[in-house]
Write a protein that binds this DNA or RNA. Sequence first.
DNA 1: CTAATTTTTAAACGCTTGTTTAATTTTTTT
DNA 2: AAAAAAATTAAACAAGCGTTTAAAAATTAG
Lengths: 206, 206
Amino acid sequence: MEKDTSTELKIKEAATRVFIAKGFNGCTSREIAKEAGMNVALVNYYFKSKSHLFEIVIASVIEKFAESLFEVFKSELPLVSKVRVFIEKEYDFLGKHPEIASFLINELSKQEANFFQCVGFSDAMKDAKIEAQVKEAQEKGEMRKINLVNIILLLMSNTNFPFIARPMIQSIHSINDENYKTHLILHKQYVIDMLINYLFPNSKEF
Amino acid sequence: MEKDTSTELKIKEAATRVFIAKGFNGCTSREIAKEAGMNVALVNYYFKSKSHLFEIVIASVIEKFAESLFEVFKSELPLVSKVRVFIEKEYDFLGKHPEIASFLINELSKQEANFFQCVGFSDAMKDAKIEAQVKEAQEKGEMRKINLVNIILLLMSNTNFPFIARPMIQSIHSINDENYKTHLILHKQYVIDMLINYLFPNSKEF
DNA sequence: CTAATTTTTAAACGCTTGTTTAATTTTTTT
DNA sequence: AAAAAAATTAAACAAGCGTTTAAAAATTAG
């Protein structure tokens, strides 16, 4: 009884694709099976139910999503650089997987479980000692004195929203995919300038 | 044959509540009927199908959502004030109806129809002559020279995301509703300061 | 008041859903 | 090669879905 049968993995990958594209309620078990190229019963043979499979998928998506985030937070860079690199990495990541941000936000607002706690997000946050680094920079007067929650909110708002709201924004302005991508490239730099300028009023990084 | 029977309105209002809370795929016709306190068949008697009812609901939600936005854009205020008032109004509106932003973004990314065009959003944008006002301010050197699409993106990112991503952010930081609300109140002012400072580098409004 | 019309209901329609069963094929073990 | 175990399948299950029908109740018209 192998742990990661090729079949098991195929189902998980197919499920990830389908769940991200259509959401938990927007797809069926049979659709996932078909995407994996196999019988419906196999989905419940390897993962006992659609819900259980979904929990596994969303946990691994969160992990993937959080990975690049912590890579930056745990690094030895000064805070100003961390902010810049974080934004750059987020735009890179979401440029490649634009549906992930919407997927997580959509499903997390419907599902009741605290998946981020399951993945140990809070603990990883403390491990990264980012709170201490912020406090230090604020006491030195290098950084604007605002709460870490607000800092994360500013960072995530300006990195995630442009990808989440893409269909809405394109609809509002009647612009196509190509055109929107062009705006996104410029937007990344605007966001970097704006945030560094706001969070580090005396910085020369921009 | 009255147009807006009390029954018809009750169904539409119930449907709006249910659709916003659970999304199109997350709820059933029977659920909507129950919420309205009546038989399932009545839903299809007044609105011919679940999809048709949904289209009507989402169009009216968009209208409500866009209303306060254009109220500001069409006003005679100088641009700097428009930005500040827009942010304040958005925080007020989303504070009262926090689920609307997520609802629109979720459903617009799944549905294929361009609902914003149906509502005449683009035209209203031109009517408001905001593009001309921006161009003028930029030529006078009062405003940073960035595209209107990016300006709207900055505004919406920082107003909508904190409400859309609330479940995720609370999950990440392990904080409760009360606590998050406190952060939101502060956040509004941070966003106003940051955006005005960035968009109008020479302004004295902050 | 009666007849016509509109509104509301209960029940059923065929279809799809998530899940399970039992049989079959494939693989592993001995 | 035979027996045991695991993987895969087709078929079925009950439950729920969106929608329709046909009859009952309520309202309006003449």
